[in-house]
Nucleic acid binder design. Sequence first.
DNA 1: CTAATAGTGTCTATCAGACACTATTAG
DNA 2: CTAATAGTGTCTGATAGACACTATTAG
Lengths: 231, 231
Amino acid sequence: MERERANPPRDAYRDPGGRTLADYPRPSVAVDTAVLTVPEGGALGIVLVRPGPGDDASARGRHRLPGTFLHEGERLAEAVLRSLRDKAGVTGLDPRQLHVFDDPDRDDRGRVLSVAHVVTVAARDLVIDETKVALVSVDRIPDLAYRHDAIVRLAVASLRAEYASVPDPRHLLEPPFTLHDLQALHEAIAGTRIPRDAFRRAMQGGLTETGRSRRGVVGKPARLFTIRSSS
Amino acid sequence: MERERANPPRDAYRDPGGRTLADYPRPSVAVDTAVLTVPEGGALGIVLVRPGPGDDASARGRHRLPGTFLHEGERLAEAVLRSLRDKAGVTGLDPRQLHVFDDPDRDDRGRVLSVAHVVTVAARDLVIDETKVALVSVDRIPDLAYRHDAIVRLAVASLRAEYASVPDPRHLLEPPFTLHDLQALHEAIAGTRIPRDAFRRAMQGGLTETGRSRRGVVGKPARLFTIRSSS
DNA sequence: CTAATAGTGTCTATCAGACACTATTAG
DNA sequence: CTAATAGTGTCTGATAGACACTATTAG
């Protein structure tokens, strides 16, 4: 796509009424992120910021999602990564946008648009400061500030839809892995049991056999798989 | 949800660094909307704003989606409805949010976040001013300004997903209607032919028979249906 | 009658779940 | 050997598409 970039000063544009961009009201824009992970052998969990003494009135005493305000020239995904760098020293995150929450009463500090995001973090990569944040199971969510519970619901539904028919789109498992490991991951995300043989058949199209097996535990050795690259 | 509303002045809040909300950069926020409709006996169409003499440099000579900047205290959905009131005198619209486009180079006028929306309009309700906008088939989209082609693709995919297994979630058809009418609608939205008997069986769970038939045309009279309320 | 469209019964391939069976290891 | 886990073959019921057939109208 060819585009001439004149790089004009910000106020060069005037609309039919003679107004510049600066004449339009500009809301504050925040990003708030649901950080989802599956701890070793656990259920689907989410990272929540603990309430603290510096919280404003509307958030007082309640957990909330990690978030930040958008900085000058910053992209939304960059703001998400920046906001998470403090809480979890993780890399390789891939924020996905969920929805913009624009309810004027959502935040008592003023008019704030919140662009909700979701990221998934492999349990092995999640490093959190337990004094600042808590890792909570998604079916034990406390009362959240800023109506963040709606973001949590969207994030969980989004992740479940993604994992419905694909082995590990968010790379939550370290390859190579066994079908047993993969099924445990899917059951944690879905929050339900999955029939063993149906699961195997649903997944095998998306997996590549390594030829190796996991030894050393009781029982028949399980074959190790990796994600099928593409086909 | 109980919340105390102190209704503080906008700058009352100070973050840990002592900054108020006003100290954060606040981008312009626009809404841009894909208006989708199925004209009588036609294919899925979209309303595009024609290029005009008042367009800024980056839009010059290219069609674009109807859009506007967010006004003070206005909700996103309200801005969408306001922007469409000029182009199409329609009511009962139900804007759905698709995605925020935050590419800094997307708009030469400055930093503008665009919150993309989609609405669907029944052909019988769509009144457009042909000098200002054009109704174009979605598979004959011209080169669009502000990278609006990405919004069109999202909007079409969203509508197709909605109609995949539900008779008429967006009320594009005036009830009562025949299965033939409904199938023509679905084929226009999907852009493909659909097997007649499979379609009937897929839809019949979501329909209520009226007991009446449509007469007056050649052939066996077709039964008239309405949408099943709920079950 | 013929042409045209609406409506239905049934066959088949596919797929998900249930279930029973075999396979291979630790101890 | 037993206990435990991995892996597979097959049955059944639900579903989608193909297809042929019947039904009812206009003219």
